[in-house]
Write a protein that binds this DNA or RNA. Structure first.
Lengths: 204, 204, 204, 204
DNA sequence: GATGAATGAGTCTTCATTCAT
DNA sequence: CATGAATGAAGACTCATTCAT
C-alpha cells in the first residue's frame, strides 16, 4: 500500500513521465501512456506513487533535489559572491539546456493550477531559493553587494530573471543557445547588486 | 453561431470567470459554476464564447488589453526612461494588488500547459513586452542606460523580476503590500541598467 | 398557440426543411439552420409547427399528399391495370428524379427510428398504398392479374421494388437515370402479376 | 486504445445493444442503458468499441455476417435457382421471425440518416446482395430465368420485396406469421423472373 | 404576427484508480 | 511484485423550445 520510493522501475517511471509530459503536457499525459513509455503496467505506477499528482511532485522533487545538491556542492568552495552568482546562472541554464524535456516540464508543464501540486513542489523549490539567498546574504555581508539590498527581493530578481529567460528560450524554437545568455544575464544581475558599481568580471 | 463579443452579459461572464477561476483554478472551474456565478444559464456562456478555453483567453485579452492601453497612455508623456520604469512597476503592482482575483488568475491559473491557451495569450502579452522594450530602447538611445544592454534580455529581467515578486506576493498570505515593493524593485532594476551607475531617484 | 397550417412562410419553411435535411440529415438539421434557410426567425417555426418532429411529418404529409392526389388524378381515366401500373412507376420515379432533395429526404432521411415520426407518416403513406392496392384489385377483378395474388403482398412487392430501386439510385452517384428503370421495373412486376403470362406491352 | 473485438463481454454488449435499441430506437438508447443491460460499466463499452456508432455498425456486421455465411452455406449445394430463391426467402424471413429484436433493429432502427453508419453497413450488406445476384445470374445462365432480366434490378426487386414484407410485419402487431409469407412471396418473385412462365413449385 | 436571446436538460466519452489473478 | 481489465464519476457542450419585446 505504502508507495515504494526506490528501485529500477521507480526511476524508469520518473524518466518516462518527464518524456511524456514534456511532449504532451501534464493534463494530456495519461497514466497509461506513461506506463507504456516506462515499460510497466498501469497498475505498477501505483506501487511506486500514490497517484498521478504524487508522480509529478516526486519527479520535481527528484530532479530539483539532484540539481540543488549538485549546485550546493559546486558553489561550496567558491569564495567570491560574484563568482558564485555567475556559477549559479551557469548551472541553472546548463541544466535546462542539457535536458530539453526536463526544461519543458519544469518551465512550462509544472506551472499548473492545482494547489496541491504547488504545495508539493514548494519545499524543494525553497531549498533552491535558500541557495540563492545565501549568495546574496554573503555578498551583502562581505561588502561586495549593496547594504540596502533586500535579500528576498534580490533572490526574486535573480530567480525571476533566470526563469523568464529560460521560459523564453523553451518557448522559442531554440535558434539561440541558452548558454549564450549566461554572461549577459550575469552582468545585468551583478550590476543590480554591486556596491558602488564595482563588479567582478564574469568568470565561472 | 458566431460568438457575441459585447454586451452586459459578456462582461458579467468574464468577471464571474475571474472570480471562480481565482478560487478554484482553471481545471477545477466548471462552466456551470461560472454560469451560476454570472447569473446566466450554462448555454448562455456559449453564446458569448466558443468554448471554455476561449473564455479564458478572452478574459486575459480583455484584462491585459485594458492594462496595456492604460499603461501606454500613462507612460506616453513621461520624458525620462527611469521615471517610465518606475511608473511601469507602479502600474504593474498596483493593478494586481487592486484586484486580487485577477492577480491569482494571471499569476497562477493562467500558467497552463495547454498549448492553445499559451498561443491565445501570446499576442496581448507581446504588446506588453513591447512597452517594456520601448522603455529600454529609449533608455539606451538617450544614454541613460548602458550601451551594451541587450534590450530583449533587459525586458526579460524587468518582466521576470516583477512577475516573480508578484507571484511570491500572491502565494503568500499578503502580510505585506505589493505596493511596498515598487521602490526597492525600481532601484534593483535601475542599477542593473544605468550607465555608469547614474540612476534617477525613485519618482512615479 | 395552435399552429398555423397555411401562409407564405409555412411553405417557405417546408422547402427550407427539405433542402437542409437533404443536405445534412434529420438529426443534423438544427431548427435554427432551417429557419435561416427559410429567412425567418427561429421562433417563427413554432408559429407554424408544433415542434421539429411536426415539421418533418408535415413536410412528408404535404409532399406525399400532393403526389398522391396527382397520381390518383392521372390514373383515374386509365382503363387497363397494366397501363396504370406502368404509369404509377413512371410517376413515382419521375417525382423523385425531378427533386433530388425530396428524394433524399423521403428515401433516406425519413427512415428515422422515432416511433412518433413513423406513426405520423403512416396515414399519408397508407393513402399511397391504397392507390397501389386498388390497381392490384382492379387487375385481379378484371382477370388481367392472377386470381391467387394476395393484394397486400402484391402491393408490398410493387412498393418494395420501387423503393429499393429508388434508394439504390439516390445512394449512387447518379451515373444512370432513374427514368431508365421505369420500363424494366414494369416488366418485372407485370410478369409477377399477369394471368397466364399475358402482359400488356409497356406504355405510359 | 485499440478496441478489443472478441471475448465474452464483447458479445454480451452486442446482445444488450440489440435489445435496448430494439426497444428504444438508436437515438434513444443511451450508452449507459446498454451497459447496464449488458451488466458492465459504461467505460467498458469503450474497451470493446470505439464509440456508440461503432457499436451499432459492429452489431450489424456481426449479425449480418453470421446470416450471410449461413445462407451461403445452405444455398451451396442446391442445384436449382428456383429452389435457391425459395430457400433464400425462407432463411431471410425465418431469421427475422426467430429474433424479433434483431428484426426491429435491422428493419427499423438501422435505417439511420447518419452517413457514417450507412457507410459502415454498406460492405456487409453488399455481401448479401452478392448472394442474391448470384442466384439471379445462375438462373439466367441456366435458362431458368428470362434472358432479358437485368440482374441488379432483379436483386433490387427480390431484396426490396422481402424487405418491405418484413418491415410491414415488424410494424404490425404480428397477427400473422412472417413464415406464412414465404411461399406466396416465392411465387410472386419466381413468376417475375421465370423464362416462359415455367416456374418450379415451391420447395425449400 | 415575428423576433432571437436565453434557457437548461440531456449524454457521450475520458481516464485515474482499483483489485482479482 | 506485477499485471491490465474493469470501473464509474465527472463535465463540456448542443440545440429544441420559450417568451419578453
Amino acid at each position: 500500500m505504502a508507495a515504494k520510493r526506490t528501485g529500477e522501475k521507480y526511476y524508469a517511471i520518473i524518466e518516462a513521465a518527464v518524456k511524456v509530459i514534456a511532449e504532451n503536457g501534464y493534463h494530456n499525459s495519461q497514466v497509461s501512456r506513461i506506463a507504456r513509455e516506462a515499460g510497466v503496467a498501469d497498475g505498477t505506477i501505483y506501487l511506486y506513487f500514490k497517484n498521478k499528482e504524487d508522480l509529478l511532485i516526486s519527479l520535481f522533487r527528484i530532479k530539483m533535489g539532484e540539481f540543488t545538491a549538485g549546485a550546493r556542492h559546486e558553489l561550496k568552495d567558491l569564495k567570491n559572491p560574484f563568482i558564485k552568482l555567475a556559477r549559479l546562472i551557469h548551472l541553472h541554464f546548463n541544466r535546462l539546456e542539457s535536458d530539453r524535456n526536463l526544461a519543458l516540464v519544469v518551465q512550462i508543464q509544472l506551472r499548473q493550477s492545482e494547489n496541491s501540486i504547488r504545495k508539493g513542489i514548494a519545499a524543494p523549490l525553497k531549498l533552491y531559493f535558500n541557495i540563492i539567498e545565501e549568495i546574496v546574504v554573503e555578498g551583502i555581508t562581505s561588502g561586495a553587494f549593496r547594504q540596502d539590498v533586500n535579500h528576498k527581493l534580490a533572490r526574486q530578481m535573480i530567480f525571476g530573471t533566470m526563469d523568464e529567460v529560460a521560459t523564453s528560450w523553451v518557448m522559442s524554437t531554440h535558434q539561440y543557445s541558452l548558454a549564450s545568455q549566461i554572461e549577459p544575464v550575469y552582468y545585468l544581475l551583478a550590476r543590480a547588486l554591486a556596491q558602488d558599481g564595482k563588479i567582478e568580471p564574469f568568470s565561472i
